[in-house]
């Protein structure tokens, strides 16, 4: 035995069994495709659907994005704004869940339980038909000047999309943020509570105030623990944003419904849209995995 050459682990290499299993899976896929082609008389026509992704604009003599890509952009805008708001709500409520004050604890608990025990669709209908049709007009958000200089600027379009649909966008975004915020609240609470009591005690023993103990000792440790579940929640939020199509926000799923109806290419449309969601969510998953790895490396 040579002390400097340990035996190599067999993990991660293909064995005979792996090849066998692969073969069976591939054979099954081929069989399924063969049978479907045989039975299903369906003329695939991707061209019309792909035309809704990008189209050739005769006027400007160039390729421009069409409805589906615009829907994807709206979905992305919606997701990013909703994530910011949901994080804000989640951090505040998550802190309230753990704080000394009973009233704040009750408020946060009610919020979380109310939302977690209701189907998202029901919550969104309640919120949309009550809040956005009653409270928004009362707050004057409906009467925002959509012809104003800022509303017509490139920056506004980049941030919020079409100014004419702004109040609609806002309602959808807040719906989504409040909904996901409840889950982020629980992640934040778990993060704060996962910090051992000894850390609190040590912080208090060296004379740090409650606020300083939280800021310098508890939260930095909590953040490291909650980043992976938070990243997962962000991806869930992108997927959940499809529900917002029910209140006519023109995001990817809403547009896809229209495209499928007008082209009657139902399979093609939804397969394409499914791939678009997959691409979006998977690239975020890869990005977060990379960030997590980097954070670990710089840890120590």
């Amino acid at each position: 035995m040579d002390r400097n050459s340990p035996p190599v682990a067999a993990k991660g290499r293909f064995t005979l069994l792996d090849y066998l299993l692969f073969g069976i899976v591939i054979a099954f896929v081929f069989y399924a495709v063969y049978r479907v082609n045989d039975v299903l008389v369906y003329q695939w026509n991707w061209e019309r659907v792909l035309g809704f992704l990008v189209k050739y604009d005769e006027e400007s003599q160039s390729w421009v994005s069409n409805l589906l890509l615009q829907g994807l952009a709206t979905t992305l805008r919606l997701a990013i704004w909703a994530t910011l708001f949901a994080t804000l709500v989640g951090v505040v409520m998550g802190y309230w869940r753990t704080c000394q004050n009973l009233t704040l604890r009750i408020i946060a608990r009610c919020y979380v339980e109310l939302i977690r025990n209701m189907p998202p669709v029901v919550f969104i209908f309640i919120f949309y038909f009550f809040v956005s049709s009653q409270i928004f007009p009362a707050m004057g958000i409906d009467s925002i000047d959509t012809q104003g200089e800022f509303a017509q600027s490139e920056v506004f379009y980049f941030l919020f999309g079409n100014p004419a649909l702004f109040s609609n966008f806002l309602a959808g975004m807040i719906c989504l943020a409040l909904f996901e915020g409840a889950y982020i609240t629980e992640i934040v609470r778990a993060g704060i509570q996962s910090t051992p009591t000894g850390q609190w005690e040590a912080a208090r023993a060296i004379g740090l105030s409650h606020f300083n103990a939280l800021r310098d000792v508890v939260i930095p440790q909590a953040i490291r623990k909650i980043l992976p579940p938070l990243a997962g929640q962000f991806i869930t939020l992108i997927k959940d944003s499809a529900i917002i199509s029910l209140i006519s926000i023109q995001e990817l799923t809403f547009i896809a419904t229209e495209v499928a109806a007008s082209t009657t290419r139902v399979f093609e449309t939804w397969i394409l849209v499914g791939l678009m969601y997959f691409g979006l969510c998977y690239s975020f998953a890869v990005l977060f995995a990379y960030l997590e790895k980097r954070a670990k490396r710089s840890d120590r």
Partner: peptide, 14 residues
């Protein structure tokens, strides 16, 4: 507390 130093069984370093 600033006048009282405390050392714990489980160190409790940050």
């Amino acid at each position: 507390r600033r006048d009282i130093g405390m050392v714990f069984q489980s160190f409790n370093l940050f």
